[in-house]
Simulated scan of single mutants.
Amino acid sequence: MSKILLIVGARPNFMKMAPLYFELTQTAGFDPIIVHTGQHYDYAMSQAFFEDLQLPESHHYLGAGSGSHAEQTAKVMIEFEKVLAQEHPDLVVVFGDVNSTVACSLTAKKQLVPVAHVEAGLRSFDETMPEEINRRVTDAISDLLLTPSVDGDENLRREGALDGRVRCVGNIMIDSLVTILGRIGADQEAQMLDDLALGTGSYVLVTLHRPSNVDEPDSLRQILVYLNHLSEKLPVVFPMHPRTRKNIERFGIDVPFTKDFRIIEPVRYRQFILLQKNARFVLTDSGGIQEETTYLKLPCLTLRPNTERPITITQGTNELVDMETIEEKSDRILSGRWKEGTVPALWDGRTAERIVRVFQEFGVSDSATRKEPVRSAL
């Protein structure tokens, strides 16, 4: 029985891990173990996702909590080393690009445990983004690089990754999206929209969290003024993070919001998918939402100067915007002049199956035969 540790820490990790966990539990020879680092530690961002995705309680909770990037990464490394000593896994699987991803990759490799990176090869080529550093470091040391699309393969090969390490398996977030869509009944959908007094295709869904958008006074003020203006054309629904609410108060931003600019509390994954599915379009700075909207063939505006998911632009329904172009592009959507887009290859809800086949081909070794890690004298 091959013991595999699945590492989750922040919201996007849960949706990427769940399909793989269930596929491993249904495949002979694998013993999947969930390690929750606690990087996102409030209920709405962690436990609620376990419930919506019907996951069991995590087998290990590291309690990393908040702090600077260095503090958070260090806490995860210290606690995860204890888990490795207890479990003696055959493989560690990390997801995405958060601090937990790079922390557990480094710790596992120093203990001579193989690492697989799900969602490898994504690049924004912007090293001012902490996520870009996490992606590059994790890919450099991982034994298996499991990419969501062919552009990821090309990035890795340019960086010198050997073909044997790189496997294009598809987008595992779409596995969770397909599953959740299949569980949502028409009555649930209608009830949620009724509760918010919204109709299908009648509103804009907004999700913003990046520091450049919500932690800078001028940027946040400009965004809120624009959204207030947009809400005069159709309702704007903004599930707002508590940090952003505090910033509005801290910065003294006083915008007289219209009745159709609806700031609501953060919602669970299932509720968010419902809101997303029925929106006219989405304004976001999230990577995963760019992918979900492309699968749903829903217009998406990404308020960022770059994206590590360019396939959502070249093939999908996404486009980058800034405060100078956002109104023109919003108006194009509202007038019906937006691209239809296509769903990229292997974004079909079966990525977890392909990953498990790769693990079988990889031949995860029995822990009893693994070498002892080198103990540093430094």
Rank of each mutant, 00 (worst) to 15 (best):
F257G: 02
P235Q: 06
I253R: 11
I253H: 13
R243K: 11
P256T: 11
H241R: 04
D260G: 01
R245F: 00
V267A: 11
K233V: 13
F257N: 02
E232N: 11
L227W: 09
P256H: 12
V255H: 10
V237D: 06
P242Y: 13
E249H: 09
I264S: 07
R250A: 15
R262I: 10
L230V: 04
R250F: 08
R245Y: 03
R243N: 01
T244N: 01
F261M: 15
Y226C: 03
E232Q: 12
L234T: 06
I248H: 10
F261H: 08
L224F: 13
T258P: 05
L230F: 14
V267H: 12
I248W: 10
R245Q: 11
I248M: 13
I263V: 15
V236S: 06
L234E: 08
E249D: 14
N228I: 00
V237A: 06
H241D: 01
Y226I: 03
I253D: 07
H241W: 06
I253F: 12
I248D: 08
G252R: 01
I253A: 08
N247P: 01
L227G: 06
L224H: 05
F238K: 05
E249C: 02
V225G: 01
P239L: 11
Y226V: 02
V237K: 06
P235I: 02
D260I: 00
T258M: 09
L224V: 07
H229N: 11
P242F: 13
E249A: 15
L230C: 06
I264V: 14
F251Q: 05
E265W: 08
I263H: 01
R262W: 11
T258I: 05
N228H: 05
P235R: 05
L227T: 07
F257Y: 15
I253T: 10
N247Q: 12
F251T: 03
G252C: 05
